[in-house]
Design a binder for these strands. Sequence first.
RNA 1: CGGGGUAUAGCGCAGUUGGUAGCGCGCCACGUUCGGGACGUGGAGGUCGCAAGUUCGAAUCUUGUUGCCCCGACCA
Length: 492
Amino acid sequence: MAELKNLTKRGENYSQWYNELVVKADLAEQSAVRGCMVIKPYGYAIWEKMQRQLDDMFKETGHVNAYFPLLIPKSFLSKEAEHVEGFAKECAVVTHYRLKNSDNGQGVTVDPAARLEEELIIRPTSETIIWNTYKNWIQSYRDLPILCNQWANVMRWEMRTRLFLRTAEFLWQEGHTAHATKEEAEEEAVKMLNVYSTFAEKYMAMPVIKGVKSESEKFAGAVNTYTIEALMQDGKALQSGTSHFLGQNFAKAFDVQFLDRDNSLSYVWATSWGVSTRLMGALIMSHSDDNGLVLPPKLAPIQVVIVPIYRGEEQLAQIDEKVAGIVSALKAKGISVKYDNADNKRPGFKFADYELKGVPVRLVMGGRDLENNTIEVMRRDTLEKETRTCDGIVEYVEQLLEDIQNNIFEKARKFRDASIREVDTYAEFKEEIEKGGFIYAHWDGTAETEALIKEETKATIRCIPEDMDATPGVCMVTGKPSARRVLFARSY
RNA sequence: CGGGGUAUAGCGCAGUUGGUAGCGCGCCACGUUCGGGACGUGGAGGUCGCAAGUUCGAAUCUUGUUGCCCCGACCA
């Protein structure tokens, strides 16, 4: 059992608070392997719920799952110029295929005789290996579209890592689609971005801003990168999912052409899109409070926990019996419920522990309740407690879970909305960016200005948002014409 | 790769002028407890990161070395 007390307050040191929370709530821990993470059963249970929901949504939009190799020949990676440029600096490379006993008799060493003729790259993303494969799958327009997704691990050798937010190895899904027309591919990229934003808002209860990345922030090898950007409680933005319109870049790099209806040969149009275990970090930093995690009911592995308070085994037996009916009725409604009658922890400990773990609803039954046919109900989002009659408790809890889901979304949305400010001068921008949140300002559209702003303020263009005011103006830095305001923030 | 820390029990730490290892939490056993993080009694657990050196004697001093953490550069 983790040490539960003395979780750092959120305001003091957000970074430290986040780290402690992840560890103490039993979600994950640092592994012995550099930059890698062990996702513990409780954390993985949340990820599994995310996976299942996303997978359903992919299926509904016509996608199928497949699996491609972990290792990518070096030559594949270098076929698309921008792509290799973007990823080269963070690739782990396999150079040998055999070990041998060390000469000094201690342990094993890499056998120099077993050097690979061509090095293999541990995938940082799978576009190249997949397009090398799609080449063989596609001859005619009748083979299109291809709508594949894969659930996989990838590896990016990051300098500095943080649990869930940036680990050297991470789990994700990556969709890779091939289309006959540009329009269809663009539509696909937008469609999947919408799947992500729906998932974020409806399931994670996390409001997001949809938009397009600037030229310098887009994916290496993409024509356009669509993104959902969320705001964390410390005022920093988090890119939570991306969908790329790849144009014909990878088709040209891997020579994937198809014969159209009119017998003309053309290159295939592509998209790719992904979300990762980073969403776990997003979830944690969107809702948690000083008592620990706050999980949206739709993703909570345990939605309802029931704690008995008793004197003596006889009373416990009575409570067990009374609770059993409630448990089975809740389960019948598809609600996941845990009855914790372990006798080695006292109630107060259990209360604190389940709050730390973000369980949305807690029911408590003690001797008084047994006499009165009542039960205490506590909701995690507001920490409010009330004692209610047991009659109709199942329906009440069912409704309460829905209320909590909506409430934490609304709370996060209000926080996010209040953090978006329009700014017209660079001086004002510099001042406002210190306060965190999103700044909506005019920019002349050049990479130079963007780089200058990043250099001077550490703020980046998070996206050119889809649903926000798009009237022209003048750049806050250079005074040159600006097509529209864009969204700035400091980010993870 | 730069700058700053740190390394002693599973975790968090103390250890004075060099004298042979300690505290809290956790863990195990038993008992009493149980409406917001219980208590008592007993117990298990450490070649003090690693390697040399100084010394009668090193967790402590010297040199080397390695790991980890924080701050930058890089990024989902």
